[in-house]
Write a protein that binds this DNA or RNA. Structure first.
Length: 295
DNA sequence: CTGAGCACCTGAGGGC
DNA sequence: TGCCCTCAGGTGCTCA
């Protein structure tokens, strides 16, 4: 259930629990994800130490001690669960016990539906990649070739980096015939803005999603850049619901979903002006906006 | 080159 | 209960 904020939070969590772990064994239960999981994933990970974890766009990258890097993408429904063969206390002090599919207190070899990759790690931990729709991806390549990888070579800049600013976006919007919503979701322009936050950011910037990109004024572009950064940062700070899934608290209604202003709020009153939120379809995906606040 | 549409999948939820 | 339809947080490919 990942947009950038969730992948960012997941990466941070994984970083704190997996850094310096050794991969003892990797089992591929099902190899047909978005692309075929490399058959030598097991051989290339066996005995390697996890040195560093980081994120690029919505990809999680795990650098290993043996010059390889694992690339993970969660697609629409991918999850990473960490099982621990002992009583597990979460960061906020709660003890997890309400999820059948995660902590089994001793019987942690039990395989759940849609578990595709299982990594046995040192420190009594097991990493499980689960993905019902299988739009996710796992690959492994030489660390030095990361940037050349075809998944990364065409990607635009990170929205939270300083280089993503009004003058950058202004240049990118020149001659764009697509809608502004499609444009900010275009990975070649900026990465990591998914369907939820595209709608949310455009609401914050008071711009209709179906405006042609070139029609935005400089002022609107400035507002939009700030809105994208703000909405992503807020969502990261709110923690992601996938993090809660990751640490196995089933709390889908909580987290940042409460912060949505327009997403999935068709026909509900706008929190700002009371007008009813409208839903339209753009390139086959739903967009939500307030017809009165957004121009 | 661009942009729209489609394909890849399973599962949840609504209508009948 | 069950069948059928629509929809879902992503992204790369094809075609015009």
């Amino acid at each position: 259930m990942p947009e950038l904020p969730e992948v960012e939070n997941l990466t941070r969590q994984l970083k704190s629990s997996l850094t310096n772990c050794v991969i003892l064994d990797t089992k591929i239960l099902f190899n047909k994800l978005r692309s075929i999981v490399p058959a030598d994933l097991s051989a290339k990970t066996k005995g390697a130490k996890i040195l560093h974890l980081h994120r690029r766009a919505k990809y999680i990258i795990i650098d290993l001690s043996n010059q390889y890097s694992i690339i993970i993408h969660l697609g629409m429904t991918g999850r990473i669960n960490i099982k621990q063969n002992e009583h597990n206390v979460l960061e906020d002090g709660e003890v997890s016990q309400n999820r059948s599919c995660s902590f089994n207190f001793g019987s942690w070899h039990e395989i759940q539906k849609h578990d595709h990759i299982i990594m046995t790690l040192s420190n009594n931990m097991t990493l499980i990649y689960n993905d019902p729709r299988r739009f996710g991806l796992i690959d492994i390549i030489n660390t030095k070739d990361l940037l050349k990888h075809k998944l990364f070579s065409h990607l635009g800049i990170e929205p939270l980096e300083e280089e993503f600013n009004a003058s950058y976006l202004f240049e990118k919007l020149k001659n764009k015939k697509a809608s502004i919503k499609n444009t900010i979701m275009d990975n070649r322009v900026i990465v990591g803005v998914g369907n939820i936050y595209a709608s949310e950011a455009l609401f914050l910037a008071h711009i209709r999603p179906d405006r042609i990109a070139t029609s935005l004024t400089k002022k609107e572009i400035e507002l939009l850049v700030l809105a994208i950064k703000e909405i992503l940062q807020k969502a990261i700070n709110a923690g992601g619901s996938s993090i809660r899934d990751f640490v196995s608290i089933d709390n889908k209604k909580g987290g940042f979903q409460k912060l949505f202003s327009v997403y999935a709020k068709t026909n509900l009153p706008c929190s700002c002006c009371g007008s009813y939120i409208k839903k339209i379809t753009q390139s086959g995906r739903s967009s939500f906006f307030c017809p009165s606040c957004q121009k």
